[in-house]
Amino acid sequence: MTTSGLTRDRRLIVGVTILGVLVLAAVLAPLIAPHDPESIDSARLLRGPSLSHLFGADALGRDVFSRVLFAFRISLVVSAGSVGLALLIGVPLGLLAGYSGGWVDLVLMRPVDMILVLPALLLAISLISVLGTGSSITLIAIAVIFFPILARVMRSSAQVVTTLPFVDSSRARGMGGFGIATRHVLPNALGPVVVQAAILMGFSMQIEAALSYLGLGTQPPTPSLGLMLFEGRDTLVQAPWAEIFPGLAIAITVLAFNLVGDGLRRHVNQHSSAA
């Protein structure tokens, strides 16, 4: 029943299919990219899309299609890595705070709330100014922005589950706090966190692009979607493809993650209302 509900959701199917294709393309980038993404060729400066250069070429004559493929690869690694790291910190934190309540909750969540009130991009930029630039620093900076969000979602979800009678029963059966939190509360509270994580994946991609656009993320010559948007902006009129295709890549990925998040959300809601 659980899986049939998931496989019947049309949005979820579309989202997962798009993501599947994109991830496959990213993984296979070295095999399917027709050109070296970093090789400069003055003979094809700002060349329009053609069969040999599907997405055209940029101001340095580099193949946009190959660059989008490799850039997407890095974006995906940064998104998955940052959300994964945020989950690793946020989920245990939120679980502990939500399950324990009282002063534990207060002590754990106050600092988290303080991070939450700071503007995300500003926080990332100040972290980068301290830690330096590069993809792995970007990954860490985004994780710092995200873990409070995930901890919050986990906390409120865990609070709800903790009030359910089976948790009380479990306590009366002599189950310890750790056992109850990990075996009862965590699995039942994880749904909304997974939904949030899927949506944050798309958001992460946007932040990574924004940071790279500002020159604070992935550094040239490594291709990055944000960087490509930055570089393409001077030749927007003569060669719009250098701008459009990286932009489209970001838009489609964010859309796909949101579709998946929405689909999962509806499933999670159905599930909890049925329980």
């Binding site: 359910l164 009678p165 089976f166 029963s169 479990s170 009366a172 002599g174 009862h184 039942n188 329980a275």
Partner: peptide, 20 residues
């Protein structure tokens, strides 16, 4: 002493873990 007293709750609102 704890296991000497056991609860039975109203059904329908999570008296059993739905995943177990």
């Amino acid at each position: 002493l704890r296991r000497a007293v056991q609860p039975v709750f109203q059904d329908s609102f999570g008296s059993l873990d739905p995943r177990w």
